[in-house]
Design a protein around this nucleic acid. Sequence first.
DNA 1: TGTTAGCACTCGACATGGAAGAGTGCTAAT
DNA 2: ATTAGCACTCTTCCATGTCGAGTGCTAACA
Lengths: 346, 346
Amino acid sequence: MDLSERKLGILKAVIDDYIMTGLPIGSRTISKKHGFDLSSATIRNEMADLEELGFLEQPHTSAGRIPSQKAYRYYVDRLMRVVKLSHAEAEKIKRYFKDRMSEVEQVMEKAAQALSDSTHHISMVLRPQLKRSVIKRIQMVKITERKAILLVITNAGLVTDTVIAVPEGLTPSYLEMIGGLLTEKLSKKTLEEAEQDLICCLRENIGINSDFVSDIISAIETSVEPQGERGIVLSGTQKIIEFPEYMSVEKARNFLSVLETKEMLYDMMKKATKLEFSVTIGQENMVKELEDMSIVTATYKIGGESLGSFGVIGPTRMDYGKVISILGYVSNSLNSIFSNFIESDD
Amino acid sequence: MDLSERKLGILKAVIDDYIMTGLPIGSRTISKKHGFDLSSATIRNEMADLEELGFLEQPHTSAGRIPSQKAYRYYVDRLMRVVKLSHAEAEKIKRYFKDRMSEVEQVMEKAAQALSDSTHHISMVLRPQLKRSVIKRIQMVKITERKAILLVITNAGLVTDTVIAVPEGLTPSYLEMIGGLLTEKLSKKTLEEAEQDLICCLRENIGINSDFVSDIISAIETSVEPQGERGIVLSGTQKIIEFPEYMSVEKARNFLSVLETKEMLYDMMKKATKLEFSVTIGQENMVKELEDMSIVTATYKIGGESLGSFGVIGPTRMDYGKVISILGYVSNSLNSIFSNFIESDD
DNA sequence: TGTTAGCACTCGACATGGAAGAGTGCTAAT
DNA sequence: ATTAGCACTCTTCCATGTCGAGTGCTAACA
């Protein structure tokens, strides 16, 4: 699996060039553009070797070569240089985050926009996985005769709020009392634990109108894990038409239908929450519809813990180096924004 | 401008057929498919007349004819039959609204999805224009040491909630007091009036930390009218690739850039709030990038007043009859959902 | 007078067939 | 080990020809 210095150089040249142009690269191009002091014939021999090793492919007999998936993998693992962002690019991203933001929703949206705008790929941002964050308080505020807002406040400084219906005639102080009860039962627990508790043993302990209680419970539950559609934010789906690889309407449609359901992406992103960076190239993702797409992800932290991930999805021919450096930059931005959400425990 | 019965029939046949197939219609097709007892030659003569009158156009000499914008206008105003939705179609829409929903955001999203799914066009839903709804109460709830949630409760039963920063050391009861003060000053006023008041004469009246007060004010202001991006929900933008008229990448891109900025759409939708239904065909919309798109809108009511509009945008070749009946159905659905948001004034 | 049949004509869609150009593999010379 | 040269392959592009759909016009018909 060890390639000669020269083969490495040629492989890198082919990949770099292909990432830029999207066109198969011929031996002549390489001997000219990239200062190798070798004739095209020599390069040809080397390229033939690389093809035999599975790093290059020919779309047809007399076209140039294009990198294989194996080549991209090798590139990402060993050849790639993660470039530092230019000042202009960094500024462009900063601009998205310049408003002071106090709501997760808004931050996610901005992040998604910044990503797709900078990378020119479709971006995905996973909502924070709050399961492991700890409840500080639960509070209910009556807003009209029959409605209240349920606030769940966690140590991550994040709040989820849901409007719930309340039986007529409940006094505000009564609601407050229930809030107090819930806080007492559930505070110091993670949302995940709380969910368990809610299901099994809360109903009995609070001897009130049971319809109301189950409303509250389901509200807390959905706030813990907003599923599928609401769990992931996409941006820049329009970008696909810019990629020649999706000119075939058939493919484009298939791909879009995957994006629309989101389930698949949601699962992937959730797994990716464990790794600081991940790069999944082509068929590595095991999903047929995405077999010539790559997915690059990174994570963000809230209170020191990786609670969510985000990334981009695009054709395997992707400028991995640049994408990764952009993700890194956004990751830092998110971390610092979210750190403002947190307050030291009292 | 009065056409003979026969010309009318032929015109309708051409439009109906073109809406279905997207292909130019020849005289033969019409004499065969649509039970006219006339030969193709006769139809040809009539079509030549219709072309002279500006209702039909020929893409090139020996193709069939396609309807002109004028024809669509005529069709919508006089020829079209608004078909009743089939049971299956109605059910399909109902399914989107089956969950009990308590938040405007969610309703809008579902409505947009239902629309784009049923019409196969891009759909747009305008957030309720709350300016004219009346404030009932303003309340602040402290959630952490330095944060509070600001709740604005209106007679439309709608709540906007924003997280705001509070100076350290403010007691909950103090916040409650400020809430009470604001309620006293602003309740019974429309949000629009309230905005005026806030700007000119509130600062002096409440002699507190002025940074904090202006935070509150700007939070209320943005809750009154979430501009541009946040004021309109789009769905189904992916649909464009399904339309042959957008195969030219250049056009598609232009169109998408209009959608992305949203400003234009926002203005249109806002104007449309005044009319129960509106149909804007092709160049009637005065926007160059949308010159071969049509926009059909309807409105929804909250508490008897038209507070928002929604609609679809698609190629002029659009099944207007069906689209309008779908909009009608969705309008009813929204009205009944929102009526649950309201509670009788006390 | 309105309708129809017939015919020449036009134009796009599609298939066919070189010619040009890019790139390759192989061989022989350096 | 490298390179120049050459035959070969395959795509792209353009010109050409054919087919079919549709038209407009004229003459005949009811």
